[in-house]
Design a protein around this nucleic acid. Structure first.
Length: 592
DNA sequence: GTCGGAAAGG
DNA sequence: CCTTTCCGAC
């Protein structure tokens, strides 16, 4: 069972009998990926950020999908707000009807194939997961890898997801047999393209590589309105990636990336180390970098995974493999649980359960090792009084620590890494998470990082322009690099987090993960809700930060995100299509 | 508008 | 669990 899996909530629809309905975020994603609905909802702003242009319509569509005629934006938005805790979504403050997906966590990793942009991409398309290079794989052939580790076979996952997605398509209320979801079609196409190989193959498309991938992910937004450089369809050359995504070695790289991505994601998600176990081949990261220097330039590896295409369903397995929904599961983020009760005061710790420890050891071990190496250098640690909380942040970041690699893409990664620290700390000082003033960020506005997670900050306005250029999508990168300074420490003093520390923390984290997760959430809630105790408040915030970090931030997320494609131009006329689509929906919905 | 608690439904 | 519904507070 372990392996990685999506959070339960992520796949519930399929797996759980009870909840098989399409989830709202899936639905939103669907709408987002269709041009037809661009008038109603579209990517805009930062990566993963979208705006509901016509709340009533979106609500209507959703209601239709769920056969809830009484649905309205108020209700829908409530549902959306529930995602805040799950970190699936965040509100972009200051912007009406604007929310932002934390693709880092979810989508990318989990649903890489989602194409948000199927045809074109969304403006703020979700990031593609790039593989960070945090992890190294032994040289093996991809196939080997795959075979060797079952876990890898995530195809199942994907497929399932795909299925899910499909299901989610706008259609149906009726029996569930929806029919057509565009997604499915898309998927199918992709598959075909790839060949039938679904699984990894898909991932690493031998020949179609980037295209598909990219295509899938769609691009980045170019809010700026740049002409979209990238073509929606086959960007082949165009890949928006700054670096060429080509997979050199064929699948291998892709695989690598893929794995890496997952791995990272794991980290991000706080997955327990055990998850790593599943990837025997994986060696952990190279944290070796003693110095924090910036990474050499890596390119983003871009397209790492593309899980995009393929994954979808396997034809044969109708279920795609999915029958087993997932052998692997990682736990992404902890769901929010509500817990209000958690006392803040308590230390986080205590984790509720620390199950993973043992296995983690393996992981950890390596991690540590690496860490040591890393650490070797300069560890400057910032010590924070903090506690776990921050630590965790860092931890997550740590993953990323890999620094080197490329994370360029990832905003998160780097961003997270550094950012978090930097950013978050400040936050600690002052803000709370939601309060945010993002918009205003009075004091020091953070550079626009794209974070995924950062909730707050990110939210801020999307300052970041999209990489319209297609280059890096992530400004963060620049950030990172920019600083040039290897270790800019900054305010927090933590910019660079000592690797060691990070690892250490991570380790701890693993053990606590669960607890933490909950904690974070709880804290968050508390904070908000109760919010108020000073001490605790602090704590909570810290916790929150962690969370945030985790989310996106963690490098993982970033990594994952890595590339965004340039957004398509977007807006085109969609009206006709829209109408048509709507009509379809209606029809589909008719069932209700 | 947005937020989130609470209760209820599936 | 994931909303859906209702609703008071900001």
């Amino acid at each position: 069972m372990l392996g990685f899996a999506f959070p339960e909530w992520a796949y519930k629809p399929e797996s759980s009998p009870g909840s098989r309905q399409i989830q709202l975020w899936h639905f939103i994603l669907e709408l987002l990926r269709k041009e037809e609905y661009h008038d109603v909802i579209a990517w805009q702003g930062d990566y993963g950020e979208f705006v509901i242009k016509d709340p009533d319509e979106v609500a209507r569509l959703w209601g239709a999908r769920k056969c809830k005629p009484q649905m309205n934006y108020d209700k829908l938005s409530r549902a959306l707000r529930y995602y805040y805790n799950k970190r699936i979504l965040h509100k972009t403050k200051g912007k009406r009807f604007t929310y932002k997906f934390n693709f880092n966590k979810l989508v990318l990793v989990n649903y890489p194939f989602i194409d948000m942009g199927s045809g074109r991409v969304p403006q703020s398309a979700p990031p593609v997961p790039t593989g960070g290079t945090h992890f190294r794989f032994p040289p093996s052939t991809p196939s080997e890898v795959l075979s060797s580790s079952e876990e890898l076979r995530s195809p199942g996952m994907f497929s399932s997801v795909a299925r899910r997605m499909a299901r989610g398509s706008v259609s149906d209320c009726s029996d569930g047999t929806s029919t057509n979801s565009e997604l499915e079609e898309a998927v199918g196409a992709e598959e075909r393209a790839v060949g039938q190989e679904r699984a990894f193959r898909g991932l690493l498309p031998p020949r179609l590589p980037h295209d598909s991938l990219f295509r899938v992910y769609g691009g980045a937004p170019n809010p700026a309105g740049l002409p979209r450089p990238a073509p929606r369809v086959h960007p082949e050359p165009l890949s928006p990636f700054p670096v060429s995504p080509l997979p050199g070695p064929g699948g291998l790289l892709d695989m690598k990336h893929y794995l890496q991505a997952h791995t990272q994601s794991v980290f991000n998600y706080h997955l327990s180390p055990r998850a790593f176990l599943h990837y025997p081949n994986i060696i952990i990261p190279q944290p070796h970098r003693p110095t924090p220097e910036k990474p050499a330039a890596h390119h983003l590896h871009g397209p790492p995974m593309s899980l995009s295409h393929s994954l979808s369903q396997q034809p044969g397995g109708g279920d795609d493999g999915h029958q087993h929904p997932s052998p692997y599961k990682f736990k992404l983020q902890p769901p929010p649980l509500g817990r209000k009760q958690r006392e803040a005061g308590s230390s986080l710790a205590t984790s509720s359960s620390s199950s993973s420890s043992s296995q983690s050891s393996s992981f950890t071990g390596s991690g540590q090792i690496s860490s040591s190496a890393l650490a070797g250098g300069p560890p400057k640690i910032k010590v924070e009084p903090i506690s776990d909380i921050e630590s965790e942040e860092e931890v997550e970041v740590t993953d990323i620590s890999e620094e080197d690699e490329l994370n360029h893409n990832n905003e998160d990664d780097q961003g997270d890494i550094f950012t978090p620290t930097v950013r978050h700390r400040p936050h600690l000082l002052n803000n709370h998470h939601q309060a945010n003033g993002n918009s205003s960020s009075p004091s020091a506005p953070l550079p626009p990082l794209p974070d995924d997670d950062d909730d707050e900050e990110v939210f801020k306005t999307p300052a970041t322009p999209p990489p319209g250029s297609g280059g890096l999508a992530f400004p963060l990168i620049s950030l990172k690099s920019e600083p040039g300074q290897p270790s800019p420490i900054s305010p927090g003093g933590t910019r660079c987090i000592p690797l060691k520390l990070r690892f250490k923390r991570r380790w701890s984290e693993d053990q606590k993960m669960e607890a933490d997760g909950e904690r974070d959430e709880a804290e968050d809630k508390k904070v908000r809700a109760e919010g108020e105790e000073e001490v605790e408040g602090k704590r909570e915030e810290a916790g929150r930060r962690e969370s945030e970090v985790e989310n996106g931030g963690g490098r993982g997320g970033g990594v994952i995100l890595g590339l965004m494609l340039p957004p398509p131009p977007t807006q085109r006329r969609a009206s006709s299509e829209l109408q048509r689509a709507t009509a379809q929906l209606s029809l589909e919905n008719t069932g209700c």
